[in-house]
Simulated assay, not measured.
Amino acid sequence: MSDAELAAHLAEVTGRLLIEVRSSGVLSLGALGKAGDATANQFLCHALREQRPQDALLSEEEKDNLDRLSASRCWIVDPVDGTREYGEARTDWAVHVALAVNGVPTDGAVALPGQGIVLRSDQPLAVPPAPDRLRMVVSRTRPAPEAKAVAERLEAELVPMGSAGAKAMAVILGQADFYLHTGGQYEWDSCAPAAVALAHGLHVSRIDGSPLVYNQADTYMPDLLICRKAHADLVLALVAECGVTGQAKP
């Protein structure tokens, strides 16, 4: 099984496990997120250590082992991206499984279990053409003023959405045209979405145009932009004009 096939398989199976945990009906909303995180993380970490024992691993739900910094290959996973949305039985949550090689997100998959979809780096889809009025995905609970300012300059429609993975995949699925994030994330929030978006021919970068680099000692990532390549220069220029910067590490 190739790295991309493994990522897709594990993301899909993890999504099914999470649906089963949620449908059990024995957990309160507060406990459901913790149970889902723990179950998904245990499966993913055991499976990756079994299938790729020589590779490093970074997970949101595991204590970080900095031995990974000496490894050229590091799997980066987010067992439940969008825990709130998962607990509320929404569809805008995701499972992220990705491999970074020498800091580059090379292979990955993002499962959207609530939608029955797995988007993967080895099976790119045709990205639908952009509509006349562009759309920007933003947080459904705390949309960043900086992103809203850029959207206003573009006269773009705001599309509220949950998890980072769901937002990034919305660009591939033709549900949105930009994902501009300035509120700060961690490597597991964007590695799999970045790998999948790159494989689909999209532009993926920091908001200053520099590449996203993974498997770093400090896993905090202040900002990112995912969009069609045809729109990248315009959005990056507007970001600079508006003086937008990524959020400093809290």
Rank of each mutant, 00 (worst) to 15 (best):
M1G: 13
D3I: 07
E5I: 07
L6F: 05
L10E: 02
G15C: 03
E20W: 00
S24E: 13
G25W: 06
V26A: 14
L27R: 10
L29W: 00
L29N: 07
A31G: 14
G33R: 06
G33A: 11
G36M: 06
D37Y: 03
T39C: 14
N41I: 00
F43I: 03
H46G: 04
A47G: 07
E50W: 09
E50K: 14
P53Y: 08
Q54S: 14
D55E: 12
L58Y: 10
E60A: 08
L66K: 12
L66Q: 12
R68E: 05
L69C: 10
S70N: 11
A71M: 11
I76F: 05
V77Q: 05
D81N: 08
T83C: 09
T83P: 06
R84V: 11
D92G: 06
V95N: 01
H96I: 01
H96S: 03
A98P: 02
A100I: 03
V104E: 13
T106C: 13
D107H: 15
D107L: 04
V110S: 02
V110M: 05
L112R: 02
P113N: 07
G114C: 07
V118N: 01
D122Q: 13
V127R: 07
V127D: 06
A130I: 01
R133E: 09
R133V: 12
R135Q: 10
M136E: 00
V137A: 05
A144T: 04
P145F: 05
E146W: 02
E146Y: 01
A147R: 04
R153P: 04
L154K: 08
E155N: 15
A156Q: 06
E157I: 09
E157C: 09
M161T: 00
A164G: 06
A164S: 12
K167L: 00
L173Y: 02
L173Q: 14
Q175G: 11
F178L: 15
Y179M: 13
Y179K: 07
Y179E: 01
G184H: 02
Y186Q: 13
Y186E: 10
E187Y: 08
W188K: 04
P193Q: 08
A197S: 15
A197M: 06
A199G: 09
I207P: 04
D208H: 09
D208N: 15
V213T: 12
N215S: 13
Y220G: 07
A230S: 14
H231W: 11
D233L: 11
E241K: 13
C242Q: 15
G246T: 02
P250G: 11
P250W: 09
P250F: 10
